[in-house]
C-alpha cells in the first residue's frame, strides 16, 4: 500500500513544477500519458484494468492521488482484472 508521501514522490518525477493537492494537473505539467505511466508504476498487478473514461474526471493532483490509491488497492486485494 502506497502512502500519500510515496505518491507525492512518484508524481514529482513527472511533474514539471512544484504542486500541492489542489494544483490542477495541467498546471503541474501532468498530461494523460504521465497519468498512465503513474498508474503503471502504482498498480500492484499488471492485470489491473484502467477505466480510461475516468481519466477525464481527474482535475487536480489530489484527484490523481485518490485514483492511484484506489488502483493500488484494487490490484492488491483482487489481484485480477475486473
Amino acid at each position: 500500500m502506497k502512502t500519500a508521501a510515496d505518491l507525492d514522490e512518484m508524481i514529482a518525477k513527472y511533474a514539471s513544477v512544484g504542486f500541492t493537492d489542489a494544483t490542477p494537473l495541467l498546471e503541474a505539467g501532468l498530461e494523460s500519458l504521465s497519468l498512465l505511466r503513474l498508474a503503471v508504476e502504482t498498480a500492484a498487478d499488471d492485470d489491473a484494468e484502467i477505466d480510461a473514461t475516468r481519466l477525464v474526471d481527474l482535475r487536480t493532483v489530489g484527484d490523481l492521488k485518490q485514483w492511484l490509491s484506489e488502483l493500488a488497492a484494487v490490484g492488491a486485494e483482487r489481484g485480477d482484472a475486473r
Binding site: 494523460s32 500519458l33 498508474a39 503503471v40 499488471d46 484502467i50
Partner: peptide
C-alpha cells in the same frame, strides 16, 4: 486517436 489501453500491462 484516443488512447484506449485498458490493462496496466499494456502500457509496455
Amino acid at each position: 486517436p484516443f488512447m484506449a489501453r485498458r490493462t496496466i500491462g499494456a502500457f509496455d
